[in-house]
Design a protein around this nucleic acid. Structure first.
Length: 636
RNA sequence: GCCAACAUAGCUCAGUUGGUAGAGCAGCGCAUUCGUAAUGCGCAGGUCUAGGGUUCAAAUCCCUAUGUUGGCUCCA
């Protein structure tokens, strides 16, 4: 048979499938081969090839190869669960490969716990060792439904029913186990060698909270033991950077049982928060933003006008004052709009950029709370931009540039998503269409890659979201740009146009940090607590070797503070090694060590975080370096 | 909110099959005055998350509540 290889070359070989092709190319490739890509479609290695096809052999290096490997591992896991718990009426859900692993959803009597993992893993090893051939076949719809009723179960039946009439219903079989599955899979169970079950969790069937809750087993699989061990080690290491752990160790913030989801900021955490705010103010002032502040509590009437009372009620904390209903603000916009309405605007005032560091309260579900990442009280670095329709694209681009610039200062990579109309929303389809297109167009002009997130917009408009990663790769939405055609109408906002007539302004809601709390969480994890100098709560620690140098050390610290550098002294009667160790654990960027020699010559011995001793110098030389580093917001 | 697991000193954690609570670090005191990741000795510190129940006896077993963790849902 003749086929084309990805590099464009043609190849003839004896045989009919990709496995035989791989063997003809080389033994190592045949061993590493997991699946094949035939004219762009991923298939099993034993799927027959056809004359003239372009074929790429997939290994664990390829995403599609990894997915096939892990998908097969998930079938092996399901097979093991069926064997072990056959008396518990196991019904299968779905079991896909995901980033870094795979899962399978089960519905069964009783619960699966982590205590069951060793038995499941042992059974999986057995199934792998039995080395069942994995065969793909398809069934007519009628037979497939019959299969579902007899063995597949109600969830599989639902999946079959939801597939289009003309869809091919493919099944994969390994030993006694058969599953409805689009595939592709490895050629046999023996190819799956290194796997580990990670956790069990509840998961609603098809992600719908009104449907039954399944038990999901998360697991991972790799092609070599080394890769599996390395992954497990990496995850363990990553957990050491968890902001909840570092927040406690570095004394930045805390959460108490008395206020679930309501964070407390300690003095050191407050320094970081204030530095972020100072930076934010400077950047926004430079870009033509003004700053306002609106009240925490406003009346029900306002929230009815804005639509929150109807569409956001479950998340609002309400209270009664003088027999009238009020709500603690869950968003800043309605208050901001009241400010807008205090006077009459001209088109000449536009675009008008109004910022607000607004603290909002939202009743988030208890199970959703997560350190500083998901809280019930947080400060948004909000801003509302009022403009004419012609100014919309430029203003969106301005916000995208601003966000890109600010994230760049922290060295963050981010992912962009465009979120469209949700079910609970207001406005006409045309308005949504127009607003969504404006956002899309701005992204296209920037030439940025973005993912469309259907139905994830705010209830008053579509949005562009910026997502940042935490220590173990979970992403959190931070910055957002939301286009709002609704509120200007609901609040009857106007401006005077060049034609002398009243016009409706367009409104953008936007944040860069998103929530200062969440951003601090992301910062902490990304820097593993070793904040760049400008953010470090303690920038310099002055350590003495003996108490003879106390006066000199105190003089140095005073001088540093006069220069605007956050300095602390450690004058305890302890050995220098002990003080250094402690300052290192506190991740202080610079240590200045003062002994008799330095005290006498008026110098400081400098230790830099991550580098160790960098030499003895005049204090003035050190402050020049430090102040330069602070000013430039150097990351490393 | 839902599913599961967990909750012991300021922190990190021990605590066998139920027999009445322990370590390290941190803190305090004393000695030591030391040159780049831990000086020694001593002292103090806990209604074992809360409330019920079983038992002669509960940190340990059972219920309930609260909180936390991993997910689902949701979201900045």
């Amino acid at each position: 048979m003749n086929i084309n290889l990805p590099d464009g070359s043609r190849r003839s070989f004896e045989g009919e499938n990709a496995l035989e092709l791989a063997k003809s190319i080389g033994n190592r490739l045949a061993k590493a081969a997991l699946a094949a890509q035939v004219d762009g479609k991923t298939v099993s290695l034993i799927t027959p090839l056809y004359e003239g096809a372009t074929v790429k052999i997939l290994t664990f290096e390829d995403e599609a190869g990894r997915n096939a490997y892990r998908h097969t591992a998930s079938h092996i896991m399901a097979q093991a669960v069926l064997r072990l718990f056959h008396e518990r009426d196991v019904k299968l859900g779905i079991g896909p490969a995901i980033e870094n692993g795979f899962y399978y959803d089960f519905d069964l009597n009783g619960t699966i716990s982590e205590d069951d993992f060793p038995a499941i893993e042992a059974e999986m090893k057995k199934i792998a060792k039995e080395n069942h051939l994995i065969r793909c076949f398809s069934m007519p719809r009628e037979d497939a439904l019959k299969w579902a009723d007899e063995t597949g179960g109600p969830y599989k039946r639902e999946l079959i029913e939801d597939l289009p009439e003309d869809a091919e219903l493919s099944f994969y079989e390994q030993g006694e186990f058969v599953d409805l599955c689009a595939g592709p899979h490895l050629s046999s169970t023996g190819k799956v060698k290194h796997f580990k079950l990670i956790s069990v969790a509840g998961a609603y069937w098809r992600g719908d909270e009104k449907r039954p809750m399944m038990q999901r087993i998360y697991a991972t699989a790799f092609d070599t033991k080394e890769a599996l061990d390395a992954y497990i080690f990496r995850m363990e290491e990553a957990k050491k950077r968890d902001h909840r752990k570092l927040g406690k160790e570095l004394d930045l913030f805390s959460l108490t049982d008395e206020g679930p989801g309501f964070p407390f900021f300690h003095p050191k955490g407050m320094i970081i928060k204030n530095e972020l705010i100072d930076f934010w103010r400077k950047v926004h002032y430079d870009r033509g933003y003004e700053e306002v502040s609106t009240p925490m509590i406003l009346s029900r009437k306002l929230w009815e006008t804005s639509g929150h009372w109807k569409l956001y009620r479950d998340n609002m904390y309400t209270l009664v004052i003088d027999d009238m209903d009020y709500a603690i603000k869950p968003m800043n916009c309605p208050g901001g709009i009241l400010l807008y309405k205090r006077k009459i605007y001209s088109y000449r005032d536009f675009p008008m950029r109004v910022g607000e560091l607004g603290t909002v309260h939202r009743h988030e579900l208890s199970g959703a709370l997560h350190g500083l990442m998901r809280v019930r009280c947080f400060t948004q670095d909000d801003a509302h931009i009022y403009m004419t329709e012609e100014q919309v694209i430029d203003e969106i681009i301005g916000v995208l540039d601003l966000t890109d610039y600010m994230y760049g200062v922290f060295g963050f990579k981010y992912r962009v998503e465009l979120s469209t109309r949700p079910e609970k929303s207001m406005g006409t389809d045309e308005q949504w269409e127009e607003a969504t297109n404006a956002l899309r167009k701005a992204l296209e002009i920037k030439g940025w890659d973005f993912k469309v997130n259907e139905g994830d917009g705010a209830f008053y408009g579509p949005k562009i979201d910026f997502h940042l990663e935490d220590c173990i790769g979970r992403t959190w939405q931070c910055g957002t740009v939301q286009l709002d055609f609704q509120n200007p109408e609901r609040f009857d906002m106007t401006y005077d146009g060049a034609d002398g007539a009243k016009h409706r302004p367009v409104m953008i809601h936007r944040t860069v940090y998103g929530s200062i709390e969440r951003f601090i969480g992301i910062l902490t994890e990304n820097f593993a607590g070793a904040f760049p100098l400008w953010l470090a709560p303690v920038q310099v620690k002055v350590l003495t070797i003996t108490q003879r140098s106390d006066d000199a050390a105190q003089a140095v610290a005073t001088k540093l503070k006069q220069c605007g550098i956050r300095a602390e002294t450690d004058l305890r009667n302890e050995k220098i090694g002990y003080k250094i160790r402690q300052a290192r654990m506190e991740k202080v960027p610079y240590m200045l060590i003062i002994g008799d020699r330095e005290a006498e010559s008026g110098t400081v011995s400098v230790r830099k975080r991550g580098e160790g001793e960098i030499g003895t110098m005049e204090l003035r030389a050190f402050t020049d370096v430090a102040l330069g580093e602070i000013k430039s917001k150097e990351i490393f």
